[in-house]
Design a protein around this nucleic acid. Structure first.
Length: 488
RNA sequence: GGCGACGUGGCCAAGUGGUAAGGCAGAGGCCUGCAAAGCCUUUACCCCCAGUUCGAAUCUGGGCGUCGCCUCCA
């Protein structure tokens, strides 16, 4: 399996530290507002990466933090006249809920910054003792960037290049403009904790480093996040961790490409964002995931509603094929055509092999999807050609293969055998004289009545049946293996 | 200004040396009583210029353009 390591800028053969096990960490959200779909892209990307590692046989431990203390949370709380803890709690819950809605797996560990203050203080103490950090008179503690000779290796920068434009903001007590806060002295009214340097709270970069160390142990196999976090966040995390513990921090750094709107990065500050919640009100999580996975995770992705609608169409076609395969398997009659079944089996094997090849090449989901789009076409062709002589095992196998592959991508289809509405009984009397209470039986008899009408060239009757069902949100689909009633 | 990424058909997109996957949209055809669904066909001088090579979308140099990071940011 090849994974692109953004620290070395090369694809590398992935070899976990501990045989068969992967420890990975992906920076979570600061819970001051609803997340937007740009944030979601990163979480969905790593969800798929994690699923593929699990599918490949690795025992994956996945940790993701919630940053529940931060300037933005405090600001939001002040705006709304609430406590920072209330704001953090609200948006923590909302984040977890919307991740579920997007079919993103829960992390194995979800630490919260405010519950990790002790370990963070311990880490800062170690850094000061080691000569890597210093406490300023104002109660802040800063990391001395120039004390770390490896600083810049994660994001590929040189300290001297960073000097231009670096400034010391008002109220800061840095010795060097590049130094960053490990601990921030509390201002009046802010949430704070006791420390050797007075009341204060941890800096953002400090949280992740301490949580990685505590819950996964250093070094970890994979550290991920959006590409906008590479510098300074990840660089700073790494500097702290390596200087505090001298054990290394992360073997592979993975960064996802930015989600764009009209060619510009989606962000809260630009105001050009759509929240994940609102997108999922209008479209399925499956379609959003499909849209995202049709682009490589490292490339920028320009979002548009048109593209999302296109993904919805693709998804409907795939879901339809899976349903039709299952249905055809259940309604197979007579001897199956062996040669056709064998070629379908070969198509399934080819899709699976290509899917694996693509996923093992730095999680090339776009290429992997193409393999299964091909199988969808092959399966549809099979259904056309086999007619009622469907090989139930071959059709079931193809359906399972398609559904299984998409499930690895977190894209799940509705249950194949959807219940038809009870309302069908209400019209059955008029359409086919059926008066029982079995919906499936009513559907059968309606189809029979239509078939008889068509055989008698009684088009008005046949079309009336179709029209009436359409008014109920149902459609009659005539396939090579026979007719059936489906939801639109 | 510094660092990095990218520029492939109407839209999106995979593809890092051997004559261009796939998706969406459009058009035509097959199937159908007519439809729907499905299938088939259909459009590429791979941003420009030069170079390396028997051969380049793929490598090198230059140009033009776009995006990201350098400040909070997934």
């Amino acid at each position: 399996m090849l994974i692109y390591n953004s620290a070395t800028r090369k694809k590398e053969e992935f070899a976990p530290i501990e045989e068969g096990k992967v420890r990975m960490y992906v920076c979570g959200p600061t819970v001051y507002d609803n997340i937007h779909i740009g944030n979601a892209r990163t979480f969905i990307s790593f969800d798929v990466i994690r699923r593929w590692l699990i599918t490949s046989g690795f025992e994956v431990t996945f940790a993701q933090n919630l940053t529940d203390v931060d300037d933005k949370i405090i600001n939001r709380a002040n705006e709304q006249g609430r406590t920072a803890a209330e704001v953090a709690e609200e948006f923590s819950k909302k984040f977890i809920n919307v991740m579920h809605a997007a079919n993103v797996m829960d992390p194995d560990v979800r630490p919260r910054a405010t519950k990790e203050i002790g370990p963070m203080i311990g880490m800062i103490k170690t850094l000061i003792e080691g000569g890597y950090a210093y406490a300023a008179d104002n109660g802040d503690v800063y990391f001395a960037v120039r004390s770390d000779p490896a600083y810049g290796e994660v994001s590929g920068r040189k300290i001297d290049d960073l000097m231009v434009g670096a400034r010391i903001a008002a109220g800061e007590a840095k010795r060097d403009p590049l130094d960053f806060a490990l601990w921030k002295a509390a201002k009046p009214g802010e949430p704070s904790w006791k420390s050797p340097w007075g009341e204060g709270r941890p800096g953002w970069h400090t949280e992740c480093a301490a949580m990685v160390h505590r819950y996964l142990g250093c070094p970890i196999d994979i550290h991920g996040g959006g590409s906008d976090l590479a510098f300074p966040h990840h660089e700073n995390e790494c500097a702290q961790a390596t200087c505090a513990w001298h054990e290394g921090f992360a073997n592979t750094w993975m960064h996802t490409g930015m989600l764009l709107v009209d060619g510009e990065k989606m962000s809260k500050s630009l105001g050009n964002f759509f929240t994940l919640e609102e997108v999922l009100e209008k479209h399925s999580a499956a379609a959003l995931r499909l849209l995202m996975l049709q682009t490589h995770y490292r490339s920028p992705l320009d979002f548009s509603w048109e593209r999302l609608a296109g993904a919805e169409n693709s998804l409907a076609r795939i879901a339809g094929t899976v349903k039709n395969l299952v249905w055809a398997a259940h309604h197979a009659e007579g001897a199956a055509a062996a040669e056709l079944a064998a070629s379908l089996g070969a198509a399934v094997d080819a899709a699976k092999a290509e899917f694996e090849r693509q996923m093992n090449d730095d999680f090339n989901t776009a290429g992997a999807l193409a393999a299964y789009f091909q199988l969808v076409t092959d399966a549809n062709t099979y259904l056309d050609q086999a007619g009622s002589a469907v090989d139930a095992d071959a059709a079931t196998g193809a359906a399972a293969s398609i559904a299984g592959a998409f499930k690895i991508l977190g894209i799940e289809f509705p249950e194949p055998e959807e219940e038809l509405p009870v309302g069908l009984l209400g019209v059955a009397g008029g359409l086919c004289a059926y008066t029982g209470d079995d919906v499936a039986e009513a559907a059968e008899q309606i189809l029979t009545a239509r078939a008889e009408a068509r055989a008698a060239k009684n088009w008005d009757v046949a079309d009336a049946i179709r029209d009436q069902l359409r008014d109920m949100g149902l459609v009659i689909e005539d396939t090579a293996a026979g007719s059936r009633i489906k939801h639109v």
